[in-house]
């Protein structure tokens, strides 16, 4: 089932976005596509509006940082409720220029999810109507979920506890 879905979506994406689909894999029975960031908006629009695929429901949108701490990623979970098929779309981009187009024009629900992602990872969603922090305080000057910020006292310089690994 999942393998068929992966093949089908993969074929369609390759037809329309030749060369922009960097990876298609099955992770724990979940089809996952890695898309070039330049094409991410077009791919999402295509997945949503294609009559056959019809991934009309944005289940989740979140961010992540890669293990090398040089890239950020945005992860979209899409759902077609009629056929009950789910896919995950990922895109990665370097941390020095973390900008990707917004998905708020496709799903109003992306509004707060993108604000949350911006809040924690500093990913700038170009075209978002109101990209400001949502859960953290406005004065915060860091993006707390990035790995370079430790759990406690992110910006303190005077406290270094080698033994217990602050």
């Amino acid at each position: 089932m999942s393998q068929e879905l992966l093949d089908k979506v993969n074929q369609k994406l390759h037809e329309h976005f030749h060369g922009s689909i960097e990876q298609a894999e099955l992770l724990y029975d979940y089809p996952v596509f890695t898309v070039n960031k330049e094409k991410i908006h077009d791919v999402l629009k295509f997945l949503k509006e294609d009559a056959d695929l019809n991934f009309h429901f944005l289940t989740d949108l979140t961010g992540m940082q890669t293990a090398d701490e040089k890239h950020l990623g945005a992860i979209y979970h899409l759902h077609n409720m009629q056929k009950n098929t789910r896919i995950r779309v990922k895109t990665f981009f370097p941390m020095i220029h973390p900008e990707i187009p917004t998905a708020t024009d496709l799903w109003p629900a992306a509004n707060w999810m993108e604000r949350e992602t911006y809040d924690f990872y500093g990913i700038k969603f170009v075209g978002h109507p109101n990209l400001v922090r949502i859960l953290n305080v406005d004065e915060m000057d860091i993006f707390p979920l990035r790995k370079e910020y430790p759990l406690e006292d992110q910006t303190r310089q005077d406290k270094s506890d080698k033994m217990f690994g602050r």
């Binding site: 992770l27 724990y28 979940y30 996952v32 289940t59 989740d60 979140t62 992860i75 979970h77 789910r86 995950r88």
Partner: peptide, 18 residues
């Protein structure tokens, strides 16, 4: 190593863990 998404029907809707 791996990536999973699991969802349950919570009191308010789809509660997902990625």
């Amino acid at each position: 190593k791996g990536e999973v998404y699991h969802c349950v029907e919570g009191g308010n809707g789809e509660l997902g863990f990625y």
